[in-house]
Amino acid sequence: MYKPEAENIIIVKDLVKKFGSFVANDHLSFEVKKGEIFGFLGANGAGKTTAIKILCGLSYPTSGHLMVGGFDIYREREKIKRNIGYMSQKFSLYDDLTVFENIRFYAGIYGLRRNVIEERSRDLMEKLDMKDARDKLIRDIPLGWKQKMAFSVAIIHNPKIVFLDEPTGGVDPVTRRQFWDMIFEASHEGITVFVTTHYMDEAEYCDRVSIMVDGKIAALDTPEKLKKDYGAGSMNEVFLKLARVKVN
């Protein structure tokens, strides 16, 4: 839920990231509110991944002031990493470990205690209706299950923010929606969701959406407002109007 009065869980001010002479992020400034679903859109090569890596504490900006979950991006990267979850299209689950082993591994990395891990994985198996799959290798379970697993594992330590980088590529439309049910639920429980996608209908599930073009934020607002401002019937049209100028 987007609440204007909620605290800023992510603050980005004048973020610049250069690779040699190439400017990947060109003075980005925005805030994300606690508990909202924030859509981070842009064409391929617009600079999304670069920005996400910085927000997750995996890469330093060239310049700019950034706070994530109340921590400074330059001085408190380890604290940031403890307080965020991350999931990408290339699921970070281990194919040759079982479902339970993957849960135990990730929960262990975040320092969860053994009895907590047992309990959470039991709840998780129940919630995902995967009890029979507990001891199956990840490589042997369907793509849709893997995806739900990957998301659940990304929030197993109850982070403040979860970053989802194109989480729904390639799955069937029913699974894609079940996945968004999980996102809505996480958001209702107060986890802030920062998500990128190429499915423009998914952009409409977000509380607010930013659209990056050539390293800059070209628009940022609620889907409703963006559609109104650009005289568009859907987010797809908004996106095409903004991003079309750039042809690669």
Binding site: A43, N44, Q89, E166, G169, G170, H198, R244, K246, N248
Partner: peptide, 11 residues
């Protein structure tokens, strides 16, 4: 067109 943005897909 998998993993390709909406603009490139249209083109």
């Amino acid at each position: 067109t998998t993993g390709v943005d909406a603009v490139s897909r249209l083109e």
